[in-house]
Write a protein that binds this DNA or RNA. Structure first.
Length: 244
DNA sequence: AACTCCTCCAACCGCCAATTT
DNA sequence: GAAATTGGCGGTTGGAGGAGT
């Protein structure tokens, strides 16, 4: 017989769920999502937990508007890699693939509309009928660099005086320096305590991660620790159910 | 003030790849 | 090596809230 509790929850996450998830990720690392989903008592799928963590709860996430530099980087990397959002995201510390994807969609649509108006102010039919798939930024008469990999923007300088050469240098550096180390449980239970990593960050600093993790507003923070007892009892329950 | 449109963003879905059994 | 399971990615959707009319 099926209990109501067994039904998988969907939709927006509650703060309590967030707290639980954060703490269980601290305990078990950010890899074993199905396991975490079960042990935590969250009636969520592993996928859902992972998504929530990656897109919202991860301590290294930046909030707020994209900077001009980031915007330029997104444009350029999209030109290079196309819709490889996760790959692009790895080059923008603190930004998620979802965020970049959303940004791209919104802005390509906007640009497409502007472009459409500029090209044919009187015409309602458009060459950009699928704006998200046919990026509109390319200039008239040029082959769209979004399809070809780009005409090469090296030498251009953005608002911050950051040239594309600099950007590519950064990218190359970070590619060299980024060591994607497979995580294991033992890694997560290192002497540093129940750690979790920021594998997607170009030059992650654990201190930085911690710092930003707990920069959440105080109310939320206090709630989180207020719930610690609840968490512990759940954890004990989870452990017991695992060990028998 | 009420309505519509637009933007932003969180979350789900389906597919595929990687890993485990 | 095959099958099953899990994780990751890209596409898409729907709701909230702000801006414009």
């Amino acid at each position: 017989m099926k209990m109501v509790q067994d039904e998988v929850r969907k939709g927006p996450w509650t703060e309590q769920e967030d707290v639980l998830l954060v703490n269980f990720v601290h305990l078990f690392g950010d890899r074993r999502w199905d396991f975490i989903a079960k042990v935590s008592g969250l009636n969520r799928t592993g996928k859902s937990c992972r998504l929530r963590w990656v897109n919202y709860l991860h301590p290294c996430l930046k909030r707020g508007k994209m900077t001009p530099h980031e915007e330029r980087l997104v444009l350029e990397l999209h030109a290079k890699w196309g819709n490889r959002w996760s790959r692009i995201a790895r080059k923008l510390p603190g930004r998620t693939d979802n965020e970049i994807k959303n940004y791209w969609r919104t802005h390509t649509r906007k640009k497409a509309q502007e472009k459409e108006q500029a090209i044919s102010p009187s015409s309602s039919s458009s060459n950009f009928h699928s704006s998200a798939d046919s990026p509109p930024f390319s200039d008239e008469g040029k082959v769209s660099f979004y399809d070809t990999g780009g005409p090469g923007m090296a030498g251009l300088e953005d608002e911050n005086g950051y040239s594309m050469d600099d950007i590519w240098k950064d990218i190359d550096m970070s590619e060299e320096n980024t060591v994607v180390k497979p995580l294991s449980l033992s890694d997560n239970y290192s002497e540093q305590g129940c750690n979790f990593s920021c594998p997607s960050m170009a030059s992650p600093s654990w201190e930085y991660c911690w710092d930003s993790l707990w920069k959440m507003d105080e109310e939320r923070e206090s709630k989180m620790f207020f719930n610690t007892n609840q968490l512990v009892s759940r954890y004990e329950y989870g452990k017991a159910s695992l060990t028998g």
